[in-house]
Design a protein around this nucleic acid. Sequence first.
DNA 1: TTAGATACATACACGTATGTTTGTAAACAC
DNA 2: GTGTTTACAAACATACGTGTATGTATCTAA
Lengths: 222, 222
Amino acid sequence: MARRTKEQAAETREQLLDAAERVFCSKGVAQTTLDDIAREAGLTRGALYWHFKNKTDLFSAMCDRVSLPMQAMLDATVLEPGSDPLGRLSRDGARILRQVSEDPRTMRVFEILMFRVELNDVVQTVLQAEKERGQHCRVQLTEVLRAAKAQGQLPGHVDCGLGAYALNSFMIGCIREWLEYREFNLADRSEWLMDTFFAGLRNAPPPPTGVAEFKSEPTVSK
Amino acid sequence: MARRTKEQAAETREQLLDAAERVFCSKGVAQTTLDDIAREAGLTRGALYWHFKNKTDLFSAMCDRVSLPMQAMLDATVLEPGSDPLGRLSRDGARILRQVSEDPRTMRVFEILMFRVELNDVVQTVLQAEKERGQHCRVQLTEVLRAAKAQGQLPGHVDCGLGAYALNSFMIGCIREWLEYREFNLADRSEWLMDTFFAGLRNAPPPPTGVAEFKSEPTVSK
DNA sequence: TTAGATACATACACGTATGTTTGTAAACAC
DNA sequence: GTGTTTACAAACATACGTGTATGTATCTAA
């Protein structure tokens, strides 16, 4: 094959990433061969090994294409100050649910991360990064809930760390279950779902007595 | 190796399933070799191929050891009639969260199903069965929520199908996030989490106008 | 204009997982 | 007590994916 211009080479790189998204999504990461991806893109493994070190490197690049922008969006919304923390949290959550259900790339990568990849050595570092992003996100959510409590939007007895965990769990669960069944239009329901969750937080019962705050708990080893 | 009695053979079969649980959980299903499992059990692949047809068969048997009892429990709690549907749902949900965080076998199998398996051909039929169990579960949850609404425990405008989806998503998300981070004692918090969720359902805002009921929505194809 | 770098395609060597076949010692039937 | 079946272990054949080495046509810079 002939050498191509830099722009053309960058384009084939994107084509390889697109092909990886599709094949990973349909066959699972471990089950797909590098040859599968190359052929899906109309190329050979030579092109793949030219642009990426190996399967791990390709997977990492594919995840970054979605994760990095989403991380930036999360950071921006959390850092932005305001007078209605709970309302903004609800709207941002609904926006994420909408994006997952409407943007094909986000949808596919989430589906891969939730169903089509297993935590092992080949993707360990990539998923470790995703895990740390999730942890970072929960810390930020806790801060926002604290601000909401300070402004009287939440009852004083709510454990903000646990509330952030519940919020994160609810959204992850909504995304996962919707991706698995796709029985309804998630975008139309995302606001109701988020509002309903926060209605729960605002009307939460007091925590059980004798149980320490979330943050002071020791990490349970595996 | 010598032939062993029937009881001893049944015992080695259990040992193989135990070993599979451990190795699947630590290395991921696709990444583990049948030789890995056999050696973890102190045996050889000969024993494995004697007791199971192949990796798929072994995986299936391992899942059934946990899924079937849990399915039975769910069915029993849903079918049992009573005067406080929401309260029983909350208690049963908390019980499941507790079991996941306290029973090692349940914990490992959930971890495998959530993080250490990818949906591909080798486990397709098994995961398909799990998926149908989930669907069946949601149908039953919808019925319970309808009963709760009929008894005045829920506002009339709540879409019970969507509520069941939210409940299921919340629990799946709680289990998934707890398994991933294990930052606190889930059993101590399970009741508060469930109560908080149902507080949200009881105080849910009315659904957006112009959006059809959950059940009448067409299935979104992939 | 030409030498070298680039962007791939092709071919090959290697390791490794799988399924199967064969071996074998003990349990069980008779 | 003998034959047969059981419950595995050990050995083998096969296939397949990876990584790398090599080939090559084009682009680019001097």
